[in-house]
Design a protein around this nucleic acid. Sequence first.
DNA 1: ATCCGGATCGCCT
DNA 2: GGCGATCCGGATG
Length: 200
Amino acid sequence: MPGRTGGTPLPSQFYDRPAEEVARDLLGAVLVSTIGGATTAGRIVEAEAYVGPHDPASHAAERIGRTARNEAMFGPPGIAYVYRIYGVHWCLNVVTGAEGYPAAVLIRAVEPLEGVDAMRRRRGDHCSDRGLTSGPGKLAAAMGITGRENGHPLDRPPLMILEGEAVDPSEIAVGPRIGVTRAADWPLRFYVRNNPWVSR
DNA sequence: ATCCGGATCGCCT
DNA sequence: GGCGATCCGGATG
């Protein structure tokens, strides 16, 4: 599908807003990876906001402060924050808000648009189409994203987010974040209703 | 120096 | 629905 991944990278100003606004507006945008020489791309269909130091579920919550791990969250808007979870998986976030203010959006799921063969190679032959990218650890693996991308500005290769077709507001659903124990009821998870790649 | 728990996934029953 | 994998950051002693 030529043209599908040839859009304009979202500028850093796009991310210089409250994380919940950015999370909502990222639905429909296109994540493109050329990591390892293979082009893979997917439409963002699920994202979660981690809104600031007052957010007890955030890796940069007040009680934790600024550390080596969460350093990227204090960086300028539009860079990647990639962390390892459970000693096994990588997860991709986009840093939001002004430099020095720690907030981010976790990309939880994408719908594959390009490079399905490369995704399957990385994820395993047994994997269904839906299982390729229907979760943060899955999409990171499918697109070759690791800790090397931590701090990378997402407006240039090898990892970019491009402007996409806007999702109709009636198709956007909101609910509590997944897997968090603190602030478990805050409605900061945004997803495209009925999309097969949304996790759970 | 040691301990604990986690923004997950896949395989098991 | 439950559990093990497999590691690191942060807290405690």
